[in-house]
Design a protein around this nucleic acid. Sequence first.
DNA 1: GCCGCTATGTGCGATACCGCACAGAAGAAC
DNA 2: GTTCTTCTGTGCGGTATCGCACATAGCGGC
Lengths: 242, 242
Amino acid sequence: MQNETGIDRNHLLESLSSDVHERLEPHLELVEVALGQVLYEPGDKMRHVYFPVDCIVSLLYVMRNGASAEISVVGNEGIVGISLFLGGESTSSRAVVQSAGAAYRLRGWRLVDEFHLHGELMMIVLRYTQSLMTQMAQTAVCNRHHTIDQQLARWLLLSLDRVPSNQLTMTQELIANMLGVRREGVTEAAGKLQKLGVIEYSRGHIKVLDRAALEKRTCECYGVVKTECDRLLTQVNASNRS
Amino acid sequence: MQNETGIDRNHLLESLSSDVHERLEPHLELVEVALGQVLYEPGDKMRHVYFPVDCIVSLLYVMRNGASAEISVVGNEGIVGISLFLGGESTSSRAVVQSAGAAYRLRGWRLVDEFHLHGELMMIVLRYTQSLMTQMAQTAVCNRHHTIDQQLARWLLLSLDRVPSNQLTMTQELIANMLGVRREGVTEAAGKLQKLGVIEYSRGHIKVLDRAALEKRTCECYGVVKTECDRLLTQVNASNRS
DNA sequence: GCCGCTATGTGCGATACCGCACAGAAGAAC
DNA sequence: GTTCTTCTGTGCGGTATCGCACATAGCGGC
Protein backbone atom coordinates (compact mmCIF):
# COMPACT_ATOMS: atom_id res chain seq x y z
CA MET A 1 0.00 0.00 0.00
CA GLN A 2 3.04 2.25 0.02
CA ASN A 3 2.75 2.50 -3.70
CA GLU A 4 3.26 6.05 -4.85
CA THR A 5 1.82 5.89 -8.33
CA GLY A 6 -1.78 5.56 -7.29
CA ILE A 7 -2.71 3.38 -10.22
CA ASP A 8 -1.97 -0.10 -9.00
CA ARG A 9 -3.76 -0.09 -5.73
CA ASN A 10 -7.04 -1.38 -4.52
CA HIS A 11 -9.69 1.31 -4.33
CA LEU A 12 -11.57 -0.32 -1.50
CA LEU A 13 -8.47 -0.45 0.67
CA GLU A 14 -7.53 3.03 -0.39
CA SER A 15 -10.78 4.48 0.75
CA LEU A 16 -10.34 3.33 4.32
CA SER A 17 -9.41 5.91 6.89
CA SER A 18 -5.97 5.65 8.37
CA ASP A 19 -6.90 3.94 11.62
CA VAL A 20 -8.77 1.10 9.96
CA HIS A 21 -6.06 0.94 7.42
CA GLU A 22 -3.40 0.60 10.06
CA ARG A 23 -5.28 -2.21 11.72
CA LEU A 24 -5.49 -4.21 8.53
CA GLU A 25 -2.19 -3.39 6.91
CA PRO A 26 0.05 -5.68 8.98
CA HIS A 27 -2.05 -8.61 7.85
CA LEU A 28 -2.28 -7.76 4.19
CA GLU A 29 -0.13 -10.01 2.10
CA LEU A 30 0.73 -9.01 -1.42
CA VAL A 31 0.47 -12.07 -3.63
CA GLU A 32 0.73 -12.77 -7.32
CA VAL A 33 -2.10 -14.69 -8.91
CA ALA A 34 -1.72 -16.53 -12.20
CA LEU A 35 -4.02 -16.64 -15.20
CA GLY A 36 -6.51 -19.41 -14.69
CA GLN A 37 -5.78 -19.80 -11.00
CA VAL A 38 -8.84 -20.73 -9.03
CA LEU A 39 -9.24 -18.73 -5.83
CA TYR A 40 -12.11 -20.89 -4.78
CA GLU A 41 -14.49 -23.48 -5.98
CA PRO A 42 -18.23 -23.57 -5.39
CA GLY A 43 -18.94 -24.75 -1.87
CA ASP A 44 -15.39 -24.13 -0.65
CA LYS A 45 -15.27 -22.56 2.73
CA MET A 46 -13.32 -19.39 2.11
CA ARG A 47 -10.24 -18.79 4.18
CA HIS A 48 -9.01 -15.59 2.58
CA VAL A 49 -10.37 -12.59 0.85
CA TYR A 50 -8.52 -10.90 -2.00
CA PHE A 51 -8.25 -7.25 -2.89
CA PRO A 52 -7.14 -7.19 -6.52
CA VAL A 53 -4.51 -4.63 -7.41
CA ASP A 54 -3.88 -5.18 -11.10
CA CYS A 55 -5.42 -8.58 -11.63
CA ILE A 56 -8.97 -9.40 -12.64
CA VAL A 57 -11.01 -12.15 -11.09
CA SER A 58 -14.14 -13.59 -12.62
CA LEU A 59 -16.99 -15.12 -10.71
CA LEU A 60 -17.96 -17.97 -12.95
CA TYR A 61 -20.71 -20.52 -12.72
CA VAL A 62 -19.82 -23.87 -14.21
CA MET A 63 -22.69 -26.17 -15.10
CA ARG A 64 -22.75 -29.90 -14.66
CA ASN A 65 -22.10 -30.37 -18.38
CA GLY A 66 -19.04 -28.13 -18.21
CA ALA A 67 -20.55 -25.10 -19.91
CA SER A 68 -20.02 -21.88 -18.03
CA ALA A 69 -21.07 -18.29 -17.67
CA GLU A 70 -19.46 -15.34 -16.01
CA ILE A 71 -21.64 -13.85 -13.31
CA SER A 72 -19.55 -10.83 -12.50
CA VAL A 73 -16.03 -9.56 -12.50
CA VAL A 74 -13.85 -8.09 -9.78
CA GLY A 75 -10.85 -5.82 -10.19
CA ASN A 76 -9.13 -3.20 -8.11
CA GLU A 77 -12.47 -1.58 -7.37
CA GLY A 78 -13.52 -4.53 -5.27
CA ILE A 79 -12.96 -7.56 -3.18
CA VAL A 80 -13.20 -11.28 -3.80
CA GLY A 81 -14.90 -13.26 -1.06
CA ILE A 82 -17.81 -11.17 0.12
CA SER A 83 -19.79 -14.23 1.15
CA LEU A 84 -17.54 -14.37 4.18
CA PHE A 85 -19.09 -11.33 5.76
CA LEU A 86 -22.48 -12.01 4.24
CA GLY A 87 -22.42 -15.11 6.37
CA GLY A 88 -22.68 -17.86 3.78
CA GLU A 89 -18.96 -18.56 3.77
CA SER A 90 -19.16 -20.14 0.33
CA THR A 91 -20.91 -19.50 -2.96
CA SER A 92 -22.21 -21.57 -5.83
CA SER A 93 -19.74 -20.02 -8.24
CA ARG A 94 -16.05 -20.33 -8.89
CA ALA A 95 -13.60 -17.44 -8.56
CA VAL A 96 -11.00 -17.69 -11.30
CA VAL A 97 -8.22 -15.33 -12.31
CA GLN A 98 -8.96 -13.85 -15.68
CA SER A 99 -5.95 -11.61 -15.83
CA ALA A 100 -2.78 -12.34 -13.89
CA GLY A 101 -1.41 -9.79 -11.47
CA ALA A 102 -1.12 -8.79 -7.85
CA ALA A 103 -3.67 -8.81 -5.07
CA TYR A 104 -3.68 -8.20 -1.36
CA ARG A 105 -4.72 -11.25 0.55
CA LEU A 106 -6.17 -11.22 4.02
CA ARG A 107 -7.27 -14.02 6.32
CA GLY A 108 -11.02 -14.14 6.18
CA TRP A 109 -11.60 -13.83 9.89
CA ARG A 110 -9.63 -10.60 10.07
CA LEU A 111 -11.93 -8.99 7.59
CA VAL A 112 -14.97 -10.42 9.32
CA ASP A 113 -13.77 -9.08 12.65
CA GLU A 114 -13.21 -5.64 11.20
CA PHE A 115 -16.58 -5.83 9.49
CA HIS A 116 -18.26 -6.48 12.82
CA LEU A 117 -16.54 -3.55 14.45
CA HIS A 118 -19.22 -1.91 12.49
CA GLY A 119 -17.29 0.97 11.16
CA GLU A 120 -16.58 2.37 7.79
CA LEU A 121 -15.26 -0.89 6.42
CA MET A 122 -18.70 -2.34 6.84
CA MET A 123 -20.33 0.52 4.98
CA ILE A 124 -17.80 0.30 2.21
CA VAL A 125 -18.03 -3.42 1.61
CA LEU A 126 -21.81 -3.35 1.79
CA ARG A 127 -21.97 -0.71 -0.86
CA TYR A 128 -19.56 -2.74 -2.92
CA THR A 129 -21.85 -5.72 -2.46
CA GLN A 130 -24.65 -3.76 -3.99
CA SER A 131 -22.53 -2.82 -6.94
CA LEU A 132 -21.77 -6.50 -7.47
CA MET A 133 -25.47 -7.24 -7.44
CA THR A 134 -26.00 -4.60 -10.10
CA GLN A 135 -23.41 -6.31 -12.22
CA MET A 136 -25.05 -9.70 -11.79
CA ALA A 137 -28.45 -8.30 -12.65
CA GLN A 138 -27.12 -6.70 -15.78
CA THR A 139 -25.35 -9.88 -16.78
CA ALA A 140 -28.68 -11.66 -16.63
CA VAL A 141 -30.34 -9.00 -18.77
CA CYS A 142 -27.49 -8.95 -21.25
CA ASN A 143 -27.50 -12.71 -21.61
CA ARG A 144 -31.16 -12.61 -22.42
CA HIS A 145 -31.36 -9.73 -24.83
CA HIS A 146 -28.11 -8.80 -26.47
CA THR A 147 -25.96 -10.07 -29.30
CA ILE A 148 -22.52 -11.55 -28.95
CA ASP A 149 -21.13 -8.43 -30.58
CA GLN A 150 -22.61 -6.25 -27.89
CA GLN A 151 -21.63 -8.57 -25.11
CA LEU A 152 -18.05 -8.82 -26.27
CA ALA A 153 -17.84 -5.03 -26.30
CA ARG A 154 -19.30 -4.88 -22.82
CA TRP A 155 -16.89 -7.53 -21.59
CA LEU A 156 -13.88 -5.76 -23.05
CA LEU A 157 -14.91 -2.48 -21.48
CA LEU A 158 -15.51 -4.00 -18.06
CA SER A 159 -12.12 -5.69 -18.21
CA LEU A 160 -10.41 -2.57 -19.48
CA ASP A 161 -11.80 -0.57 -16.59
CA ARG A 162 -10.05 -2.90 -14.19
CA VAL A 163 -6.60 -2.91 -15.71
CA PRO A 164 -4.00 -0.17 -15.92
CA SER A 165 -3.22 -0.51 -19.64
CA ASN A 166 -5.24 -0.92 -22.81
CA GLN A 167 -4.07 -4.50 -23.25
CA LEU A 168 -5.61 -7.76 -22.19
CA THR A 169 -4.05 -11.20 -22.16
CA MET A 170 -6.91 -13.45 -23.01
CA THR A 171 -7.63 -16.00 -25.72
CA GLN A 172 -10.91 -16.07 -27.57
CA GLU A 173 -11.55 -19.47 -26.08
CA LEU A 174 -11.44 -18.04 -22.58
CA ILE A 175 -13.61 -15.09 -23.48
CA ALA A 176 -16.11 -17.55 -24.91
CA ASN A 177 -16.16 -19.41 -21.58
CA MET A 178 -16.83 -16.17 -19.77
CA LEU A 179 -19.62 -15.09 -22.06
CA GLY A 180 -20.98 -18.60 -22.18
CA VAL A 181 -20.92 -18.74 -25.98
CA ARG A 182 -19.05 -20.71 -28.64
CA ARG A 183 -15.47 -19.79 -29.30
CA GLU A 184 -16.34 -19.30 -32.99
CA GLY A 185 -18.87 -16.70 -32.02
CA VAL A 186 -16.17 -14.71 -30.29
CA THR A 187 -13.84 -15.15 -33.26
CA GLU A 188 -16.45 -13.63 -35.51
CA ALA A 189 -17.31 -10.73 -33.21
CA ALA A 190 -13.64 -9.97 -32.53
CA GLY A 191 -12.91 -10.20 -36.24
CA LYS A 192 -15.44 -7.48 -36.95
CA LEU A 193 -13.91 -5.24 -34.29
CA GLN A 194 -10.46 -5.79 -35.71
CA LYS A 195 -11.57 -4.97 -39.25
CA LEU A 196 -13.05 -1.76 -37.94
CA GLY A 197 -9.75 -0.91 -36.25
CA VAL A 198 -11.33 -0.88 -32.81
CA ILE A 199 -9.10 -3.61 -31.43
CA GLU A 200 -6.03 -5.49 -32.50
CA TYR A 201 -5.27 -8.99 -31.36
CA SER A 202 -3.11 -12.00 -31.87
CA ARG A 203 -2.82 -15.29 -30.08
CA GLY A 204 -4.13 -14.27 -26.71
CA HIS A 205 -3.19 -10.62 -26.69
CA ILE A 206 -5.82 -7.98 -27.25
CA LYS A 207 -5.09 -4.31 -27.59
CA VAL A 208 -7.93 -1.83 -27.52
CA LEU A 209 -7.26 0.99 -29.97
CA ASP A 210 -10.52 2.88 -29.89
CA ARG A 211 -12.35 2.78 -26.62
CA ALA A 212 -15.02 5.21 -27.70
CA ALA A 213 -15.96 2.96 -30.63
CA LEU A 214 -16.36 0.06 -28.23
CA GLU A 215 -18.72 2.10 -26.12
CA LYS A 216 -20.79 2.86 -29.18
CA ARG A 217 -21.07 -0.79 -30.09
CA THR A 218 -22.03 -2.12 -26.70
CA CYS A 219 -25.49 -2.30 -25.16
CA GLU A 220 -26.87 -0.17 -22.37
CA CYS A 221 -25.73 -2.79 -19.85
CA TYR A 222 -22.21 -1.46 -19.69
CA GLY A 223 -23.36 2.04 -18.93
CA VAL A 224 -25.78 0.90 -16.26
CA VAL A 225 -23.11 -1.07 -14.46
CA LYS A 226 -20.50 1.64 -14.79
CA THR A 227 -22.77 4.40 -13.59
CA GLU A 228 -24.07 2.41 -10.67
CA CYS A 229 -20.60 1.29 -9.60
CA ASP A 230 -19.36 4.86 -9.72
CA ARG A 231 -22.30 6.05 -7.69
CA LEU A 232 -21.91 3.33 -5.08
CA LEU A 233 -18.17 3.39 -4.77
CA THR A 234 -17.02 6.96 -5.22
CA GLN A 235 -19.53 8.17 -2.68
CA VAL A 236 -17.81 5.89 -0.22
CA ASN A 237 -14.50 7.49 -0.92
CA ALA A 238 -15.92 10.96 -0.65
CA SER A 239 -17.60 10.34 2.68
CA ASN A 240 -14.53 8.74 4.21
CA ARG A 241 -11.81 10.93 2.87
CA SER A 242 -11.24 13.54 5.51
CA MET B 1 -47.62 -11.73 13.29
CA GLN B 2 -50.09 -13.28 15.67
CA ASN B 3 -51.10 -15.60 12.93
CA GLU B 4 -51.54 -19.11 14.23
CA THR B 5 -51.44 -21.10 11.02
CA GLY B 6 -47.78 -20.65 10.37
CA ILE B 7 -48.18 -20.62 6.63
CA ASP B 8 -48.87 -17.03 5.80
CA ARG B 9 -46.08 -15.37 7.64
CA ASN B 10 -42.75 -13.99 6.66
CA HIS B 11 -39.90 -16.35 7.43
CA LEU B 12 -37.37 -13.61 7.96
CA LEU B 13 -39.53 -11.91 10.55
CA GLU B 14 -40.39 -15.23 12.09
CA SER B 15 -36.80 -16.13 12.65
CA LEU B 16 -36.10 -13.07 14.80
CA SER B 17 -35.79 -13.58 18.50
CA SER B 18 -38.53 -12.13 20.65
CA ASP B 19 -36.74 -8.97 21.76
CA VAL B 20 -35.89 -7.83 18.24
CA HIS B 21 -39.31 -8.87 17.20
CA GLU B 22 -40.94 -6.77 19.87
CA ARG B 23 -38.91 -3.75 18.85
CA LEU B 24 -40.06 -4.00 15.25
CA GLU B 25 -43.60 -5.22 15.65
CA PRO B 26 -45.23 -1.93 16.64
CA HIS B 27 -44.00 -0.44 13.40
CA LEU B 28 -44.94 -3.27 11.08
CA GLU B 29 -47.92 -2.40 8.99
CA LEU B 30 -49.83 -5.15 7.24
CA VAL B 31 -50.68 -3.96 3.74
CA GLU B 32 -52.26 -5.51 0.69
CA VAL B 33 -50.39 -5.17 -2.57
CA ALA B 34 -52.09 -5.55 -5.94
CA LEU B 35 -50.98 -7.44 -9.01
CA GLY B 36 -48.79 -5.19 -11.09
CA GLN B 37 -48.27 -2.66 -8.32
CA VAL B 38 -44.83 -1.11 -8.43
CA LEU B 39 -43.13 -0.93 -5.05
CA TYR B 40 -40.35 1.10 -6.49
CA GLU B 41 -38.82 2.22 -9.70
CA PRO B 42 -35.14 2.22 -10.61
CA GLY B 43 -33.41 5.10 -8.91
CA ASP B 44 -36.23 5.71 -6.43
CA LYS B 45 -35.02 6.42 -2.98
CA MET B 46 -36.69 3.73 -0.93
CA ARG B 47 -38.80 4.79 2.01
CA HIS B 48 -40.13 1.40 3.08
CA VAL B 49 -39.09 -2.18 3.06
CA TYR B 50 -41.61 -4.98 2.54
CA PHE B 51 -41.74 -8.42 4.08
CA PRO B 52 -44.02 -10.44 1.79
CA VAL B 53 -46.47 -12.74 3.51
CA ASP B 54 -48.37 -14.35 0.67
CA CYS B 55 -47.54 -12.08 -2.21
CA ILE B 56 -44.66 -12.39 -4.66
CA VAL B 57 -42.53 -9.49 -5.78
CA SER B 58 -40.28 -9.57 -8.83
CA LEU B 59 -37.16 -7.54 -9.27
CA LEU B 60 -37.35 -6.63 -12.90
CA TYR B 61 -35.00 -4.75 -15.14
CA VAL B 62 -36.71 -2.79 -17.88
CA MET B 63 -34.59 -1.78 -20.83
CA ARG B 64 -34.81 1.48 -22.69
CA ASN B 65 -36.74 -0.19 -25.49
CA GLY B 66 -39.28 -1.57 -23.04
CA ALA B 67 -38.10 -5.18 -23.07
CA SER B 68 -37.61 -6.63 -19.64
CA ALA B 69 -36.10 -9.46 -17.66
CA GLU B 70 -36.70 -10.70 -14.17
CA ILE B 71 -33.58 -10.59 -12.06
CA SER B 72 -34.90 -12.35 -9.00
CA VAL B 73 -38.05 -12.97 -7.06
CA VAL B 74 -38.96 -12.34 -3.44
CA GLY B 75 -41.65 -14.08 -1.42
CA ASN B 76 -42.25 -14.82 2.23
CA GLU B 77 -38.69 -16.07 2.55
CA GLY B 78 -37.32 -12.59 2.08
CA ILE B 79 -37.49 -8.86 2.06
CA VAL B 80 -37.90 -6.23 -0.62
CA GLY B 81 -35.59 -3.26 -0.31
CA ILE B 82 -32.23 -4.59 0.78
CA SER B 83 -30.39 -1.75 -0.90
CA LEU B 84 -31.47 0.36 2.05
CA PHE B 85 -29.13 -1.36 4.44
CA LEU B 86 -26.57 -2.05 1.76
CA GLY B 87 -26.24 1.70 1.57
CA GLY B 88 -27.19 2.37 -2.02
CA GLU B 89 -30.76 3.35 -1.16
CA SER B 90 -31.93 2.64 -4.70
CA THR B 91 -31.36 0.03 -7.37
CA SER B 92 -31.37 -0.09 -11.14
CA SER B 93 -34.32 -2.46 -11.19
CA ARG B 94 -38.02 -2.16 -10.58
CA ALA B 95 -39.86 -4.03 -7.85
CA VAL B 96 -43.25 -5.12 -9.12
CA VAL B 97 -45.92 -7.31 -7.57
CA GLN B 98 -46.21 -10.53 -9.47
CA SER B 99 -48.83 -12.10 -7.26
CA ALA B 100 -51.20 -10.02 -5.14
CA GLY B 101 -51.34 -10.54 -1.42
CA ALA B 102 -50.26 -9.24 1.94
CA ALA B 103 -46.93 -7.90 3.12
CA TYR B 104 -45.59 -6.26 6.23
CA ARG B 105 -44.31 -2.81 5.54
CA LEU B 106 -41.77 -0.99 7.64
CA ARG B 107 -40.27 2.45 7.38
CA GLY B 108 -36.84 2.06 5.91
CA TRP B 109 -34.99 3.89 8.63
CA ARG B 110 -36.41 1.59 11.30
CA LEU B 111 -34.92 -1.39 9.57
CA VAL B 112 -31.65 0.41 9.01
CA ASP B 113 -31.48 1.39 12.68
CA GLU B 114 -32.11 -2.17 13.77
CA PHE B 115 -29.55 -3.38 11.23
CA HIS B 116 -26.95 -1.12 12.75
CA LEU B 117 -27.66 -2.34 16.23
CA HIS B 118 -25.60 -5.09 14.84
CA GLY B 119 -27.57 -7.99 16.15
CA GLU B 120 -29.20 -11.01 14.68
CA LEU B 121 -31.27 -8.99 12.24
CA MET B 122 -28.09 -7.96 10.55
CA MET B 123 -26.88 -11.52 10.25
CA ILE B 124 -30.21 -12.68 8.92
CA VAL B 125 -30.64 -10.03 6.26
CA LEU B 126 -27.04 -10.40 5.15
CA ARG B 127 -27.51 -14.11 4.65
CA TYR B 128 -30.69 -13.34 2.78
CA THR B 129 -28.73 -10.93 0.62
CA GLN B 130 -26.42 -13.72 -0.34
CA SER B 131 -29.32 -15.95 -1.27
CA LEU B 132 -30.62 -13.19 -3.51
CA MET B 133 -27.24 -12.99 -5.19
CA THR B 134 -27.35 -16.71 -5.83
CA GLN B 135 -30.69 -16.26 -7.49
CA MET B 136 -29.38 -13.45 -9.68
CA ALA B 137 -26.36 -15.47 -10.68
CA GLN B 138 -28.49 -18.42 -11.63
CA THR B 139 -30.84 -16.21 -13.59
CA ALA B 140 -27.88 -15.07 -15.65
CA VAL B 141 -26.77 -18.64 -16.27
CA CYS B 142 -30.26 -19.80 -17.12
CA ASN B 143 -30.79 -16.94 -19.54
CA ARG B 144 -27.67 -17.93 -21.34
CA HIS B 145 -27.95 -21.66 -21.55
CA HIS B 146 -31.45 -23.00 -21.11
CA THR B 147 -34.55 -23.34 -23.22
CA ILE B 148 -37.83 -21.57 -22.62
CA ASP B 149 -39.33 -24.90 -21.56
CA GLN B 150 -36.76 -25.27 -18.80
CA GLN B 151 -37.01 -21.66 -17.76
CA LEU B 152 -40.76 -21.75 -17.55
CA ALA B 153 -40.55 -24.80 -15.30
CA ARG B 154 -37.98 -23.07 -13.13
CA TRP B 155 -40.10 -19.96 -12.93
CA LEU B 156 -43.21 -21.89 -11.97
CA LEU B 157 -41.34 -23.75 -9.26
CA LEU B 158 -39.78 -20.62 -7.81
CA SER B 159 -43.19 -18.96 -7.74
CA LEU B 160 -44.87 -22.02 -6.29
CA ASP B 161 -42.35 -22.13 -3.47
CA ARG B 162 -43.45 -18.66 -2.44
CA VAL B 163 -47.18 -19.14 -2.41
CA PRO B 164 -49.35 -21.21 -0.08
CA SER B 165 -51.39 -22.99 -2.78
CA ASN B 166 -50.64 -24.73 -6.06
CA GLN B 167 -52.29 -21.95 -8.05
CA LEU B 168 -50.86 -18.87 -9.67
CA THR B 169 -52.70 -15.90 -11.10
CA MET B 170 -50.58 -14.86 -14.02
CA THR B 171 -51.12 -14.45 -17.73
CA GLN B 172 -48.69 -15.85 -20.25
CA GLU B 173 -47.99 -12.31 -21.34
CA LEU B 174 -46.73 -11.42 -17.87
CA ILE B 175 -44.67 -14.58 -17.59
CA ALA B 176 -43.10 -13.69 -20.92
CA ASN B 177 -42.14 -10.27 -19.55
CA MET B 178 -40.52 -11.92 -16.56
CA LEU B 179 -38.58 -14.43 -18.58
CA GLY B 180 -37.75 -11.79 -21.16
CA VAL B 181 -39.10 -13.87 -24.05
CA ARG B 182 -42.00 -13.65 -26.50
CA ARG B 183 -45.47 -14.37 -25.24
CA GLU B 184 -45.86 -16.98 -27.99
CA GLY B 185 -42.87 -18.80 -26.64
CA VAL B 186 -44.57 -19.11 -23.27
CA THR B 187 -47.79 -20.23 -24.95
CA GLU B 188 -45.95 -23.03 -26.63
CA ALA B 189 -44.04 -24.14 -23.54
CA ALA B 190 -47.13 -23.96 -21.36
CA GLY B 191 -49.11 -25.84 -23.98
CA LYS B 192 -46.67 -28.72 -23.80
CA LEU B 193 -46.94 -28.83 -20.03
CA GLN B 194 -50.71 -28.84 -20.21
CA LYS B 195 -50.78 -31.66 -22.74
CA LEU B 196 -48.58 -33.66 -20.42
CA GLY B 197 -50.99 -33.02 -17.56
CA VAL B 198 -48.34 -31.21 -15.54
CA ILE B 199 -50.27 -27.97 -15.32
CA GLU B 200 -53.72 -26.72 -16.17
CA TYR B 201 -54.42 -23.16 -17.09
CA SER B 202 -56.94 -20.79 -18.46
CA ARG B 203 -56.97 -17.06 -18.92
CA GLY B 204 -54.53 -16.06 -16.30
CA HIS B 205 -54.97 -18.90 -13.83
CA ILE B 206 -52.41 -21.63 -13.62
CA LYS B 207 -52.79 -24.73 -11.50
CA VAL B 208 -49.83 -27.02 -10.99
CA LEU B 209 -50.97 -30.64 -10.96
CA ASP B 210 -47.68 -32.49 -10.92
CA ARG B 211 -44.86 -30.70 -9.18
CA ALA B 212 -42.45 -33.60 -9.50
CA ALA B 213 -42.84 -33.57 -13.27
CA LEU B 214 -41.99 -29.87 -13.31
CA GLU B 215 -38.84 -30.56 -11.37
CA LYS B 216 -37.85 -33.18 -13.90
CA ARG B 217 -38.31 -30.78 -16.77
CA THR B 218 -36.43 -27.83 -15.36
CA CYS B 219 -32.71 -27.18 -15.50
CA GLU B 220 -30.22 -27.46 -12.67
CA CYS B 221 -30.73 -23.77 -11.93
CA TYR B 222 -33.82 -24.34 -9.85
CA GLY B 223 -32.08 -26.88 -7.65
CA VAL B 224 -29.04 -24.70 -7.15
CA VAL B 225 -31.13 -21.74 -6.03
CA LYS B 226 -33.38 -23.86 -3.84
CA THR B 227 -30.54 -25.65 -2.12
CA GLU B 228 -28.56 -22.50 -1.54
CA CYS B 229 -31.54 -20.58 -0.20
CA ASP B 230 -32.35 -23.41 2.18
CA ARG B 231 -28.76 -23.53 3.35
CA LEU B 232 -28.54 -19.79 3.87
CA LEU B 233 -31.94 -19.22 5.41
CA THR B 234 -32.75 -22.26 7.52
CA GLN B 235 -29.41 -22.06 9.24
CA VAL B 236 -30.41 -18.61 10.35
CA ASN B 237 -33.60 -19.91 11.84
CA ALA B 238 -31.82 -22.75 13.56
CA SER B 239 -29.20 -20.54 15.11
CA ASN B 240 -31.70 -17.99 16.33
CA ARG B 241 -34.49 -20.19 17.52
CA SER B 242 -33.84 -20.72 21.17
C1' DG C 1 14.60 -25.64 -40.30
C1' DC C 2 11.09 -28.85 -38.82
C1' DC C 3 7.56 -30.56 -35.67
C1' DG C 4 3.83 -30.02 -32.84
C1' DC C 5 0.76 -27.42 -30.21
C1' DT C 6 -2.30 -23.87 -29.58
C1' DA C 7 -4.91 -20.01 -31.40
C1' DT C 8 -7.70 -18.37 -34.93
C1' DG C 9 -10.64 -18.53 -39.31
C1' DT C 10 -14.43 -20.45 -42.05
C1' DG C 11 -18.16 -23.05 -43.86
C1' DC C 12 -22.55 -25.59 -43.35
C1' DG C 13 -26.69 -27.67 -41.71
C1' DA C 14 -29.62 -27.65 -37.55
C1' DT C 15 -32.42 -25.28 -34.23
C1' DA C 16 -34.31 -22.13 -30.91
C1' DC C 17 -36.19 -18.11 -30.83
C1' DC C 18 -38.03 -13.81 -32.82
C1' DG C 19 -41.41 -10.63 -35.18
C1' DC C 20 -45.49 -10.42 -37.18
C1' DA C 21 -50.12 -11.51 -38.56
C1' DC C 22 -54.21 -13.24 -37.48
C1' DA C 23 -57.70 -16.66 -35.71
C1' DG C 24 -60.34 -18.56 -32.02
C1' DA C 25 -62.13 -18.54 -27.30
C1' DA C 26 -63.38 -17.14 -22.71
C1' DG C 27 -65.11 -13.60 -19.92
C1' DA C 28 -66.75 -8.81 -18.99
C1' DA C 29 -69.85 -4.97 -20.24
C1' DC C 30 -74.12 -3.71 -21.76
C1' DG D 1 -78.47 -12.26 -25.74
C1' DT D 2 -74.57 -9.07 -28.44
C1' DT D 3 -70.39 -6.67 -28.36
C1' DC D 4 -65.75 -5.85 -26.75
C1' DT D 5 -61.70 -6.89 -24.68
C1' DT D 6 -58.37 -9.88 -23.18
C1' DC D 7 -56.09 -14.11 -23.36
C1' DT D 8 -54.48 -17.95 -25.93
C1' DG D 9 -53.24 -20.70 -30.25
C1' DT D 10 -50.91 -21.17 -34.70
C1' DG D 11 -48.37 -20.47 -38.83
C1' DC D 12 -44.44 -18.58 -41.44
C1' DG D 13 -40.27 -16.40 -42.81
C1' DG D 14 -36.05 -14.44 -40.76
C1' DT D 15 -31.93 -14.59 -37.88
C1' DA D 16 -28.60 -15.44 -34.16
C1' DT D 17 -26.39 -18.90 -32.38
C1' DC D 18 -24.99 -23.72 -32.09
C1' DG D 19 -22.36 -28.03 -33.11
C1' DC D 20 -19.22 -29.87 -35.83
C1' DA D 21 -15.54 -30.36 -39.14
C1' DC D 22 -11.58 -28.82 -40.78
C1' DA D 23 -8.24 -25.30 -42.65
C1' DT D 24 -4.66 -21.96 -41.59
C1' DA D 25 -1.38 -19.48 -38.86
C1' DG D 26 1.87 -18.12 -35.15
C1' DC D 27 5.19 -19.72 -31.93
C1' DG D 28 8.10 -22.75 -28.85
C1' DG D 29 11.09 -26.73 -28.55
C1' DC D 30 14.70 -29.21 -30.53
